[in-house]
């Protein structure tokens, strides 16, 4: 039986008073599973990821990670204590750090350990060639490889990806999502991918949910 890693129960969120983004949302994710969240823009897909990482606080509901509660009416674990990785569409690489230093940023341990681990992850993402390059000299695809390596390097059990491939061209997008899927399966990392493309979701995800008018629809692949 697969172990449940993340559980979201009756989650509601509003930006300002009375502007409700979604309400009463529930879903769960098992270890090693890839979940796709589909839906049109502006309906709160990214907000859902921000709630799971702790970058936003829900109005009501509960988020559990393994056996601990991350967010509820009484408990709120700050984002830097949750151990959940995040990859955003704009990559958000630190422009003053090289690719290797970017990947090292979240790793704990001695400098030697950090170097070895960061280089390994760059290699897994086929990004070892530009380890010493700065973000502004990399292409969009190269930057996204480094961003994924950076999120995976601290070895979180769960990585959230917010439209990670949307700014890339078609061929590169397909190549990178294929490699990402293989990597997640190989490292048994659970992940949630927000996308607005059904084809992408089908290609990479084990299960898909759709956000529509503030509610969740379960879709079968």
């Amino acid at each position: 039986m697969k172990k449940e890693i993340l559980s979201v129960r009756s989650l509601s969120f509003e930006y300002e008073k009375n502007i409700e983004i979604f309400s009463n949302i529930s879903f769960s994710l098992n270890k090693g599973e890839i979940l796709g969240i589909l839906g049109p823009s502006g309906l709160g897909k990214s907000t859902l990821l921000r709630l799971i990482t702790g970058l936003e606080k829900p109005k009501t509901g509960e988020i559990s990670y393994y056996d601990s509660i991350l967010s509820s009416n009484k408990i709120f674990v700050p984002p830097n204590q949750r151990g959940i990785g995040l990859v955003v569409q704009e990559k958000a690489l630190f422009p003053h750090l090289s690719s290797l230093e970017n990947v090292k940023f979240g790793i704990k341990g001695s400098n030697r350990e950090k170097n070895i681990k960061a280089q390994n992850f760059l290699k897994l993402l086929k990004a070892e060639k530009f380890a010493d390059s700065y973000p502004n000299s990399l292409s969009g695809g190269q930057q996204q490889r480094v961003a994924i390596a950076r999120a995976l390097a601290p070895e979180p059990d769960l990585v959230l990806l917010d439209e990670p491939f949307s700014s890339l061209d078609k061929d590169l997008r397909e190549e990178l999502r294929r490699e990402t899927k293989i990597l997640f399966k190989k490292t048994n990392t659970s992940s949630i991918i927000v996308t607005h493309e059904m084809e992408e979701a089908k290609d990479i995800c084990d299960k898909i949910i759709k956000l529509e008018q503030g509610k969740i629809l379960n879709l079968t692949i």
Partner: peptide
């Protein structure tokens, strides 16, 4: 400075103090 940089730093287990000095 894009706020995504802060978001990502936090999810990489960095405290505000570390974000202040390192980023």
């Amino acid at each position: 400075l894009s706020s995504s940089i802060d978001d990502v730093s936090l999810t990489l287990s960095k405290s505000k103090f570390e974000i202040f000095f390192k980023v």
